[in-house]
Write a protein that binds this DNA or RNA. Structure first.
Lengths: 195, 195
DNA sequence: ATTATTTTGGAACGAAAAGTACAGAATTAT
DNA sequence: ATAATTCTGTACTTTTCGTTCCAAAATAAT
């Protein structure tokens, strides 16, 4: 009954995600977004609402795609240690953006360091995401403990938290330097905490 | 021969540091700075130059004060493990800003996640600071290895890197939640990598 | 073809940003 | 006291931000 949209809504959202991911919410200006998304002003406002609404869609999209895929290794039926190891390895790979299709690091980690100026709902989302990751790590460790793979006297809650922290740290350090050896060293040392 | 400055330059710089620290470079607007520093527009431009110049002074000041004091434990003549432990503990304390005099987390960690929009010289400073910290951690571990406190077969370069990463992670997570137990759990688990 | 509906591009708007200009106030040296 | 110099507050300019408005173009249904 009316003219269909000229651009691919999903593709444009993906591009917006990359811009917010690398520049942050405030750092990504409307001109940046317009150019990067390849969409005109009216089209953007018409399709997504205002900047904040677009950002919320981007955050949701990130969770469903990038976030989900990064946690994939934790859901596999490998041994617990193998799950953790491949999770961290994948983290390093995406932090370095070896494929070149994504910015480095993690959108949520970046957001966490700029929560002071952020929307309250964003703060909630970030907090929830961190807690969720800690719990997922804990669940894997617990499974490993029950199977005898991880010694019963290990404080797996603390280990889960350490891994959570290290994951954030990997995302931080990778923003400043793309040294794979450095990041993989972190992973290697962290794995010894499970021995 | 002329009228002296009306305000305390150092104190104003300190206040500017707190504002940049909690809000970031772009998030800290001139009105924010003017109000927080308790200085009028002309005085600020007269005393520091423009916003970027002020920021560079802030970064230098942060290194000399906060940065230096946070690394203090690494320079003590305690045992290596004790050095590391008290370094991490101090990190947790300041991350939670237990004294209430400072914002939480770390200015440099925050900067690292927003390097894309930052000045190149800032990027260099952040990178240098991370490398310096890794080296300091390594030096302490090396000392511990030579004294026999740390087993000779440990990969202390990787451990130093892991601790570097975890330090950044602590700064990140502490921005989102002020859970002391969570952060201290990270420290506890990380310390087991030295055993 | 006509009509109804929606997208689209470009201009325009208001608010807020950083930085500047200038006049007057204040203080030290003469 | 006076003069020279520097600080300070207000108001201004310029730029850039996010957003809105409106007419023209485009398409699907009638």
């Amino acid at each position: 009954m009316a003219r269909p949209r000229d651009f691919d809504r999903q593709q444009a959202l993906e591009r917006a995600m990359h811009i917010f991911w690398s520049k942050g919410y405030e750092g990504a200006t409307m001109p940046d977004l317009l150019e990067g998304m390849g969409v005109s002003r009216s089209s953007l406002y018409n399709a997504y609402g205002d900047k904040l609404a677009l950002f919320h869609e981007v955050v949701a999209h990130y969770r469903q795609t990038i976030g989900e895929s990064k946690r994939q290794p934790l859901l596999r039926s490998d041994s617990a240690k193998q799950c953790i190891r491949s999770y961290l390895q994948l983290l390093v790979d995406t932090a370095l953006s070896g494929d070149g299709t994504h910015p480095g690091g993690c959108l949520f980690t970046n957001l966490a360091t700029s929560l002071e100026t952020a929307d309250e709902s964003v703060r909630q989302t970030v907090l929830h995401s961190l807690n969720q990751l800690e719990q997922q790590l804990y669940d894997v460790l617990e499974r490993g403990r029950q199977s005898g793979e991880i010694a019963a006297d290990k404080d797996i809650r603390s280990i889960a938290r350490m891994l959570l922290g290290l994951a954030q740290g990997i995302n931080v350090v990778s923003r400043a330097s793309k040294d794979r050896e450095q990041l993989e060293g972190m992973v290697r040392a962290a794995m010894t905490a499970l021995e």
